[in-house]
Design a protein around this nucleic acid. Structure first.
Lengths: 206, 206
DNA sequence: GTCTATAGACGGATAGAC
DNA sequence: GTCTATCCGTCTATAGAC
């Protein structure tokens, strides 16, 4: 995803690019339509011309963000050629690279999931459901074969996601308290691509 | 912290109680001063009488929330009688109990930390800094003694916090996708009080 | 300290000219 | 499709009576 706005993009596209950046960074309530207009260099009225409302525009951006989050998940989880550990390794690599490129995406995702508690239909069953079941079954099989300790799959899901996503959302804390600058932070996240699969293996087996 | 409002509390206290609940649940932008007034049964004008502004009230609530988050951290980390694993065990117990009681606190904390990236002085050095150094030194010593693999302490911090906090902020996802109801969710979080110390030990030693 | 009433700014949305 | 001007509801904050 490019950082700079495409000057030759259509008006509609320019609005979406600015909206995506702002909504992802600051969320719905804190982003003002006037801001989006200014950022994208378009007239305020055009926002309502192309997208019916602020909420309509937000929903589009949210779906795109969540889709980009889920992208690859279905195929990866559903791939019967890969074992559990191979999947975790691919998962860590894929998402950490994604989050290094889009550092505001993790917080947006977390917020969206959290808000789904009160709200919405965001977490309805989707294309990842079937493939997630395949992954869960692989875990159950490892348990049955006594290769790992008995554990509820939700713990594993939580731990994988937490180890991958959480450092990004507490980045400011790590940077301030551990005296890590931006460059070192990225290096540390890259380290985690290798560390997380090893950690999870240890957790499961011991 | 009690769920019901104290009817005999002073006006100032009543405002703070309602504000705490609403701000913690919905954040700054989505909470309206009128809501706080209505919830606490006071007149809207009194909010500005006691606290200069909405922002002023929010800052107080935020500091209290962050203080309650840090409470115990300093003493625990600084306690030279406890080894690393004992500290992690106490940490998991303390915070998971805290978060079960205040389920919106985790998201509030995460949001506050994340916003500190752009903003503020929230993450300034505080009383936990000195004691955190003691904890970090204990880790370094374990590495020096070859009892655990070499690792940057920030990874351990991330992992501990992630394993403890993250499941709470993705609660809605776990509940929908893993068919866990509220009661089972709490049970699962209680399980984690015991599991997390074991997991971290495995991660560090293997 | 507590109330009513309202000022004053902001933000989403649209009418209507071009 | 794009613009200016403006409507109108919402919100924070305060003036001023009691």
């Amino acid at each position: 995803m490019p950082k700079k706005l495409n000057k030759d993009a259509s008006t509609e596209e320019k609005i979406k690019q600015a909206a995506k950046r702002l909504f992802t960074q600051k969320g719905f309530a804190e982003t003002k339509t006037r801001e989006i207009a200014e950022e994208s260099g378009i007239n305020l009225a055009l926002l309502n011309y192309y997208f019916r409302s602020k909420q309509g525009l937000y929903n589009i951006i949210m779906k795109e963000n969540m889709a980009s989050f889920k992208q690859g998940l279905a195929e990866l989880f559903g791939d019967t050629q890969l074992d559990v550990y191979q999947k975790i390794e691919k998962l860590a690599h894929y998402y950490i690279d994604e989050f290094i490129t889009n550092p505001d995406l993790p917080m947006f995702i977390v917020n969206t999931i959290y808000m789904a508690g009160n709200d919405s239909t965001i977490l309805e069953e989707d294309e990842t459901s079937a493939s997630r079941k395949i992954f869960v079954n692989q875990i159950k099989e490892l348990v049955a074969q006594r290769k790992i300790k008995p554990i509820h799959p939700a713990h594993i899901l939580s731990n994988m996601m937490g180890l991958i996503i959480f450092p990004f959302v507490i980045g400011p804390l790590l940077k301030k308290r551990a005296n890590i600058n931006d460059k070192a932070f990225v290096e540390m996240m890259k380290e985690r691509k290798k560390l997380i699969p090893v950690w999870i293996k240890s957790m499961l087996e011991n």
